[in-house]
Design a protein around this nucleic acid. Structure first.
Lengths: 117, 117
DNA sequence: ATAAGATACTTCGCCTGTCAAGGTATTTCG
DNA sequence: CGAAATACCTTGACAGGCGAAGTATCTTAT
């Protein structure tokens, strides 16, 4: 986990929504998936993860239901809602804008928009 | 200001350090510079700005001094330290890593690292 | 049966960064 | 004098991340 969480703050919800865009899933598995996709560079702390689920559900971006009541530890599955998909698209767009802005702001020798001095 | 500050949280310090890499400057001017470079898309709230200066100075990344005691509103100038330059380089590297990670995590149709199913 | 370890979910309380709101002091314009 | 811009600073509240602790189940080994 070489990336400080503060840099990713505010992106937690979007990361989760992205996972759910691939289909319903449960917390533990979502987190493992994040770790795999980042090759171990990043993963949620449990408290962060479940806090995010609660927040997303309260905002109506996801729905939850208990997994089949069979053998194995109980699992709470999450499903992205229509509002969640819209939110996701919005957030990804904002992420693109953020990249542009920060790339500009982290550039020392600067060329663009210098027209008016 | 179409970008929510939460997405940029944790990058405030690096934005300021970048500005100071171009030379000594004072708060108000730094903020105006940020606004110009982002074409009005982003700017700091004053409280955020001055909190960041204090934090950066406490961490030894910047130094401050009062501007020439002449006419005009007093200005507190800031100067980046050697530790600040190192920190800046570190943060920019981390930003690159963050971009890679989030781009991967915001990607729905996913190819890489799928070798093991 | 017992113990250990992995899976899986939940809550509490602290820490930190952001920011609305308010304040101070100076200069310029009328 | 008043208003507006420049320029700085502080307080208090809020929200997200997370360490720590707890609950319950399943698997593996003894």
């Amino acid at each position: 986990m070489s990336i400080t969480a503060d840099t990713l703050r505010g992106n937690t919800d979007t990361i989760i929504l992205t996972q759910l865009m691939r289909g319903d899933n449960y917390g533990y598995e979502i987190n493992k998936s994040v770790q795999q996709r980042t090759k171990g560079e990043y993963g949620f702390k449990e408290a962060t993860l479940y806090t995010a689920f609660k927040r997303l559900e309260q905002n109506g971006f996801i729905r939850s239901y208990w997994g089949e009541d069979g053998p194995g530890a109980r699992r709470r599955y999450y499903s992205i809602t229509e509002a969640g998909r819209l939110q996701w698209a919005e957030s990804v767009k904002e992420w693109e804008a953020t990249k542009t802005i920060l790339d500009a702001l982290f550039c020392v020798d600067y060329e663009e928009a210098e027209s008016d001095g």
